[in-house]
Design a protein around this nucleic acid. Structure first.
Lengths: 222, 222, 222, 222
DNA sequence: TATGAATGAGATTTCATTCAT
DNA sequence: AATGAATGAAATCTCATTCAT
C-alpha cells in the first residue's frame, strides 16, 4: 500500500499549539479537531465550513478550538501543510515514463498513488481551489502544491523526444485532468470505478503526453 | 469570430424581475447589475462576493438590487442560465474529429470557441465550482452544463475506432483538462499565451483521445 | 336594510386628495385604493399591510398612491373616519331597552345593525385594535369610536332601575362582548351563524345588563 | 392568593436554547430576555417590538439573543407556552356555578384569578391578538388557549337549566367580555378599579349566562 | 393624472473570536 | 486543559416614500 494512503495527520497544528508543549491529551484533542475539519470541509466546502460545525463534530468547544488554532484559516493551513508534504513525497516518486508498456505501468502506478492521496485529502484540495480566489494565503500554499507536481512532470515529459507541444502546458494539463477527474468522481458527477478512471486517464495521458502507442484495452488489478 | 465570444447578457433576470414588465430603464439597470456581478465574481469569487460590492460597482443602491433579484443566488442563477445556453450552443458545433489534420483543426477550432466563451464567462464558471459544494441548486445547474459538453464529446469519441478506454471518462477527462487549464490561465497560475495553450491541449487531446498522429509543432494564427 | 350595510366609502380621502379638486377619474382611483386597503387589511391586518399589496390589489402604482394619501396611516385614517361616522349614526339609533319583549327586540335590532357594520368595516375595526398600542393617532381615533358606543349604552343602561353594577363598566362590557364575538366569528374561531350569535348575545345582554327576564329560546328572522 | 398570580417564567425557552444544556448563567440570561420581552411587548406590542429593544432592556447583545431564540416569534412562542399552561391550570379550577350566592362567589373568584393572570401576562395575551392575523403559527397557539377556556365554560353553562341560548356562543361571549374588558382596563381606556370591574362583570355574567338572580349591589373585598 | 424606478434607513441574522469560570 | 457564554462587526433583506418621465 502506498505511503499516501496512510497519512499521518499534522503533528504540528496551528500557531497556538506550536508555542506550547502538547501532552497526550492535547495531541488527541488537536487530532480530533483536524479530523473534524476534514469531515466538515468535505460536507460543506471551505467557505461554508463553520467553526461551530467543526467543534460539534469534534465534540469539543469553541474555546478549545482557539487553544489549538489561531483562527479558522490557521487550521486549514495546518491541513494544507500536511497535504503539501504528501504531494511533495508523491512527486519524488515519479520515475521516467517511456512510450512502452513499462512507461504505462509507471504512470498508472503514480496516478494510483495520487488517487489514494486525493481520496484521503480531497476535501483539503478542493478547499484550496475554493479559497483560491481572494488573497487568502491558503491559496498561495495551494499554488506551491501545484508547482511541485508540475515540476516533477515537466522533468519527465522533457525526457520524451519529438514533442510538438509546450512541456509546461502539457504538465499542467496533466494535473488539471487528473485533479478535476477525481473531483468529478468524488462529487458524484462521474459515476465510474476508480480503476476504470485510472485506466482511461493513464491511457489518454500516456498516449497524448508521453508518446505511448495506442493498444487494446486491458484491465489492471487495483 | 464565433458567436460565443459576443454573448448577449441575460435578458430574463431574476425572480422579481420576471414578475413585472421591464421598461428600457429597468432593463438597463438589470444589465448594469449583471455586468457588475461578473466583475465582482471575477475579483472575489462567489462566496466572498457581497451584494454591497455588486451595487457599488453598478453604481446603484441596495434596494434596487432586490428589485431585480431575490438574492445573490438568484442573480447568479440568471448568469448561469446564460452560460448554459452558450455552452449548449457551443456543444452543438462540435463536428466529427478524425485522426487526420482536418480532425486536428476541427478540435482546435472548437477549443478556441470554448476559450472565447471561458474568457468571457470565466467568472461564472469558476463561481459555479465554488458554489458546487452545499445544497445550492446552482450546483445542479452546473452539472447540466457539464453534461451537455460531455454528451457532445462522447458522441465524437465514439466515432473513433479502436479506443481502449471508456468514452465517458475520456470525455470528462477532456472537459476537465480544458476547463481547469483555462482556470489556471485566468488565475495566472499558468503563464502562457492563449494560442500556445490551445496548441498544446489540442495536440494532447487529439493524440490521446481521438487517435491523432503525433506531428511536428506548429503555430496557428489566432 | 339598515344604513350601516350600504356604507358610502370615504368621499374625502387623505390629505393630498383634499387639497385639490377630484374629477371623476380621480374619485374612481381613490375609491379603488380605499377598497383595496380594506381587502388587504382583512387579509393581512394593519402591520403586515404593505403599500405594495394595496396598489397591487387596486391595480395602480406606488406613485399614484401618494397622489391621494400622504402615507399609509393617512389612508387608514380616512377609512377610520368613515367608520366613526357610521358608528356615530348607529349609536344614535339605540332606543330605550326595557326588560320586556320590546326591549329585547330593540336590542337585537341594534345589535343586528352593529353586526352589519362589523361585517363590512370589520377589517378597519380590527386594524384599530392592532394599531392601538404605540402612539399611532389611529389608535386615538379608535378610542373615540369606542366612547361613542359606550356613551349611548350608558344612557340606556341608566334608564333601567335596580342595577347593582357600574353602568360604565357594564356598557363597556357590552361593547367588549359584541365586538370580540364578531371578531371570533370573522376570524373563524367561532363557527356559528350570524343569527344564532345575535340571539345568544342579545339574550345574555338583555338579561344580564338590561334586567330582562329569561325566556324560552326563539328564532328571529334575519 | 391563587397560583396563577405567581407564574414561573418559561424554563424551556426557544429552539436554540433547547438544543443545549443551559447552565446557571445561561438560564439567567434567558430569563432576562423573557422578562425584557414582556416589558417591550407591553410598551410597543408585538409588531413594533424590535429585537433591538429587547436586548437593550435585557442589557445584553444582539448576538446573545440568537443564542437563546431563533427569532422574535420563537421567543414569543416560549412566552405563549407559559401562558397556555397557566390558562389551562386556571380553566381546571372552574367549579360549578349555580344561580345562587355561592355560584356568584365561585364565578367571581375564578374571574379574579383570571384577572391576576391577565395583569401578569397581559402583554403576551394582547400580543397574541395582534399577531393573530397572518400565518404566524402563534395565532394557532392562541386559539388553543381560547378553546381551553371556552371548553371549561361550556361544561358549566351546560349544567344550568332552562338556557335559551347556545352554550358555545355564551361561553365565547363570556371570554370575549372578560378578556376585552381587561384589555380596556390595562390600556387605560376604562378607568375603574379592578374590584369594580370584577363586581360588574361577575354580576352581568352570573345573571345573563348562569341564571343568577339580580341583587343589590355589594362590595367584595379583594 | 399616472407610472415604474430608485432610494436608504432600519431591522434581522450570522458567526469568528474573546471572555470568564 | 476545557468550557459555555458573550460579543459586535458585517451581511442580508424589507419597504415606506420620493423621483423622473
Amino acid at each position: 500500500m502506498p505511503a499516501a494512503s496512510r497519512p499521518k495527520l499534522s503533528t504540528r497544528g496551528g500557531a497556538p499549539a506550536q508555542e506550547r508543549e502538547l501532552r497526550a491529551q492535547g495531541k488527541k484533542t488537536m487530532r480530533k479537531l483536524l479530523d473534524a475539519a476534514m469531515v466538515v470541509l468535505d460536507k460543506r466546502g471551505y467557505h461554508a465550513a463553520r467553526v461551530d460545525d467543526i467543534v460539534k463534530v469534534a465534540r469539543t468547544s469553541h474555546g478549545t478550538f482557539y487553544l489549538y488554532f489561531a483562527n479558522k484559516e490557521d487550521l486549514f493551513r495546518a491541513l494544507l501543510t500536511d497535504v503539501s508534504e504528501e504531494v511533495e513525497a508523491l512527486a519524488e516518486t515519479l520515475g521516467p515514463i517511456g512510450p512502452d508498456e513499462a512507461g504505462y505501468r509507471e504512470l498508472r502506478g503514480w496516478l494510483a498513488r495520487f488517487s489514494d492521496l486525493y481520496l484521503h485529502y480531497g476535501p483539503v484540495i478542493r478547499a484550496w481551489t475554493e479559497a483560491d480566489v481572494e488573497g487568502l494565503d491558503v491559496g498561495r500554499m495551494g499554488e506551491q502544491v501545484l508547482t511541485t507536481m508540475v515540476t516533477a512532470l515537466i522533468a519527465r515529459i522533457g525526457e520524451s523526444d519529438g514533442n510538438d507541444f509546450d512541456p509546461q502546458v502539457a504538465a499542467m494539463a496533466t494535473v488539471a485532468m487528473v485533479e478535476r477527474l477525481h473531483y468529478y468522481l468524488v462529487s458524484r458527477q462521474l459515476d465510474v470505478s476508480r480503476d476504470d478512471l485510472l485506466d482511461t486517464v493513464t491511457t489518454v495521458l500516456h498516449v497524448g503526453v508521453f508518446g505511448g502507442a495506442r493498444r487494446k484495452r486491458r484491465r489492471t488489478a487495483s
